[in-house]
Design a protein around this nucleic acid. Structure first.
Lengths: 189, 189
DNA sequence: TTCATTTTGTGATTTTCGTCACAGGTTGAT
DNA sequence: ATCAACCTGTGACGAAAATCACAAAATGAA
């Protein structure tokens, strides 16, 4: 078990000194997940940020018994339920492994400590949030600006791996349309 | 011209010492805006974060000649185009005063300096981003989880001032539907 | 006040997409 | 290899919302 992937992931967010990088890395634990294993169930308070080393995590909401996927987090991405993490309120979403997956866990309490200890790590936290916010805005704008057909085209162009690794049924709710509609859009290309 | 509103706005994001608060406040300039005045045009690189003291700012995208509003930032809110601010790429959106408005400007370069000078201010930056991200996710989930009628009800319940201060036509694109649809939904309540 | 401009309401029609139903494929476990 | 469970494609149909057209109402400027 090495830290190479994690280290690279951290450095891609902010360039840290060896000391700061070590501090961060020593505060995590690696965790293997079986496909389908739940990291955060709805109703539970989120206390963790996860880094995906291998596999992917799926974030979804339950609306009238139907699952609505809002995020797929692949290798080298960080993910959490920030609303719950920040406020301590019960999570409104689920986070679950979509494949056999390996994650690194960052506990909120530990991170807050590190922020106080190290300006570099606080800066890392800020940079991570900036990137998450930009990603989030991009995905939100998909819905606000683009039609279903354009949304599908956007994924084909910018996130082709989504089509490889996620089933069409799961993709459909991520794109805000019915499974059948994705199937028909896909045909007409 | 006092700093009272700005100070309160800053403290609502993170509790800062008098020194840190003064550092931040001294780095800003107040700017009055006429209704319709543009702060950031599409294509320009965003170099500023704005705090709204009075009035509101409207963020919108131009899609095939039609304006699509993605945000209304009222009193005591911070706003920017983070994607452009962060990357230095030209902005894809416009930011414009929706009423006669007073804002405080934070220049990116100055902020980056302050982050290096003061861990407290870096922490303020991180907290501001956290709040922006939570707000952003909430609005994104509006589209992913709720139908047009539910989206309208959500605004009535959670952001009633939007209905008071923004025209129905402007609201409609914010809610992702046609003007006529908002009008009909409003009637049936 | 008056008049032009903008905003809103409403009906008729069309389009898009969701829902339902079912057949054919694929996958994975035993 | 076999079978069950799941996934995808496709047609028929209906519901929801967009578009178009225009009237009524509100707003703002001179």
């Amino acid at each position: 078990m090495t830290h190479r992937s994690l280290e690279a992931g951290i450095q891609s967010i902010a360039e840290l000194s060896r000391d700061a990088s070590d501090l961060l890395i020593c505060s995590t634990r690696q965790k293997p997940l079986a496909k389908g294993q739940v990291l955060l169930p709805e109703g539970q308070v989120c206390k963790t940020i996860w880094y995906v080393e291998k596999g992917y995590l799926r974030t979804f909401y339950n609306k009238d018994g139907k699952e609505i996927n809002t995020r797929f987090s692949f290798e080298n991405e960080f993910v959490t339920d920030l609303k719950s993490l920040r406020s301590g309120a019960p999570s409104a979403c689920w986070i679950q492994a979509g494949e056999a997956t390996v994650v690194w866990e960052f506990a909120k309490v530990t991170l807050l400590d590190l922020y106080r200890q190290s300006a570099e790590i606080e800066s890392f936290g800020r940079n991570l949030l900036e990137q998450m916010l930009v990603d989030q805005e991009d995905h939100a704008n998909l819905f606000r600006i683009h039609s279903p057909t354009e949304r599908y085209a956007y994924v084909v162009r910018h996130f082709p791996q989504l089509l490889q690794r996620v089933s069409l049924s799961q993709l459909s709710s991520y794109l805000g349309m019915a499974r059948e509609t994705v199937s028909r859009i896909r045909k007409n290309r």
